[in-house]
Design a protein around this nucleic acid. Structure first.
Length: 448
RNA sequence: GGCCCGGUGGCAGAGUGGUUAUGCAGAGGACUGCAAAUCCUUGUACGUCGGUUCGAUUCCGGCCCGGGCCUCCA
């Protein structure tokens, strides 16, 4: 398999450091608000990578760590606004995140460490960094001395001059150098804080990922993923912290970054106020599976414009896939080689989906092998988990029996060649969002 | 200002130095009581100007346009 490495800017053959223990780390959410579709993209993209790695190396051989950042100034601010305690807010938001990501068909990661449970490791790392001369305490803060790490800027391709020239915020007075960044900062009374050799305080944003990745995956691991916007400063700083603390030549051998979700061509972000939450889209009636398909409809490194039209189109595509599976016995088979080949070539999901469409075409024409391959290939992508009837009918519940009765009544009318009555029944059902499909023997129904 | 992406047919979206991407939408036909679903057929592409080449959408350069990063961000 080959993946594009942000660090080298080349597509490289992936060989795990230890094939018995393939290690993937992805930066997870800061839990202070509902996940937006831009937060969902890396979750879905790296969920697919996780599935692919498990398929290739074995389910028990892949460890996927995705953190939850539950200490952060945005959380403090959000809790103050909502009147909740920090624990209430982060607990509630983390649960919502889990629900939303499950709706998108994302598997839980192997481990999901929380920043507040890795404070000891962070303090250890910071202590090592100070001892090695890569960090210093000043004004109650501990700062990383960026100048002490020659490779600083390697990931984001930014030289020292560029970093200084581009600085657009005021340099805090306790920094020796404007490039330096915070590892630990002091906490006042109400702010969450932990005792440390530098006083009561809380971690900087970047150190948590270095600590959690180290704890669960070791000092050097295989793949580090996240959104494009994390390259600088977050991942740059993670690399600096981890490599300097561990004295290693690299933190991860492969860095993968997904492109932005955009709205009308502009990046979606909280600061622009154009966010679309997963929750909102689900409430509008878009299925999580359609959202997942929409997120996979473009290559992961390209910008993705998530529009309602795209979500509707994803739904139509799923209708077609499920239609090919409908009413057929589908044995479990290995995923088709063409799907695997597409995914193993830098997660080329559009190509994999094209293969699925080709299989769906053959399946519709009655090719049983293609039907099984479609199901299997879809599941590798985290799609088509449901039975076709569940997909088409949803949880109709009590309405199902009534619909069945109406369908039977219409059949009766058709047999009597009372088409006026038959069409009236069909029209009434259609008005309720139920569409009928007359087959040779019987009539199937589905939600529009 | 520095650095970095991208511009493909009505829309979405892969890919390739010469051979149909694919999906949606559109058009025609089959099936159907009529539909729906399905099947068959079908049109429209590679921002722009140069260069390299037997041949460029694909490589190189200029230009135009769009987007991003430069310590909030997935």
């Amino acid at each position: 398999m080959r993946f594009y490495n942000s660090l080298t800017r080349r597509t490289e053959i992936f060989v795990p450091l230890d094939p018995e223990r393939v290690r993937l780390y992805v930066c997870g959410p800061t839990v202070y608000d509902f996940a937006h579709i831009g937060n969902a993209r890396p979750v879905v993209v790296f969920d697919l990578l996780f599935r692919l790695l498990r398929h290739r190396f074995g389910e028990g051989q892949v460890i996927y760590a995705r953190n939850i950042t539950d200490v952060d100034d945005k959380i403090v601010a959000a809790a103050a606004t909502s009147g909740e305690t920090i624990e209430q807010l982060t607990g509630r938001t983390a649960r919502a995140f889990h629900d939303d990501m499950a709706a998108l068909g994302a598997l839980p990661p192997s481990v999901e460490p929380r920043a507040t449970q890795a404070i000891a490791e962070m303090i250890d790392l910071i202590g090592v960094l100070i001892a090695k001369g890569h960090a210093y305490a000043a004004g109650g803060h501990v700062l990383f001395a960026a100048g002490s790490f020659p490779d600083y800027g390697a990931l984001s391709r930014r030289g020292r001059d560029a970093l200084l020239a581009g600085a657009r915020i005021e340099v805090a007075p306790y920094k020796r150098d404007s490039m330096d960044f915070v590892l630990w900062k002091p906490s006042t009374g109400e702010q969450p804080g932990w005792d440390s050799p530098w006083g009561r305080g809380r971690p900087g944003w970047h150190i948590e990922c270095s600590a959690m990745a180290w704890r669960h995956l070791g000092p050097v691991f295989d793949i580090h993923g996240g959104g494009l916007d994390l390259i600088f400063p977050h991942h740059e700083n993670e690399i600096a912290q981890s490599r300097c603390a561990h004295g290693s030549g690299r933190m991860a051998q492969l860095w993968m970054h997904n492109g932005y979700v955009v709205v009308d061509g502009e990046k979606m972000s909280k600061s622009l106020g154009n966010v679309l939450t997963v929750r909102q889209l689900l409430a509008e009636g878009h299925s999580g599976e359609a959202i997942r398909l929409a997120l996979l409809s473009g290559h992961y490194r390209q910008p993705l414009d998530v529009t309602r039209g795209k979500l509707r189109e994803a739904k139509v595509q799923l209708d077609r896939f499920y239609g090919a599976l409908r009413g057929r016995a589908v044995p479990a088979v290995a995923p088709p080689a063409a799907v695997l080949e597409a995914l193993e070539e830098d997660l080329n999901t559009p190509k994999a989906l094209a293969v699925l469409h080709a299989l769906a075409n053959r399946a519709h024409r009655g090719d049983a092998a293609a039907t099984a391959a479609l199901q299997s290939g879809g599941r590798l992508l985290g799609l088509l988990p449901a039975g076709p009837e569940d997909w088409f009918r949803g949880d109709a519940g009590a309405a199902a029996a009534e619909i069945e009765a109406l369908v039977a009544a219409r059949q009766e009318a058709r047999r009597a060649r009372d088409f006026v009555r038959a069409d009236r029944i069909r029209d009434n059902l259609k008005a309720r969002g139920i569409e009928l499909e007359d087959g040779p023997q019987e009539t199937a129904w589905r939600r529009a």
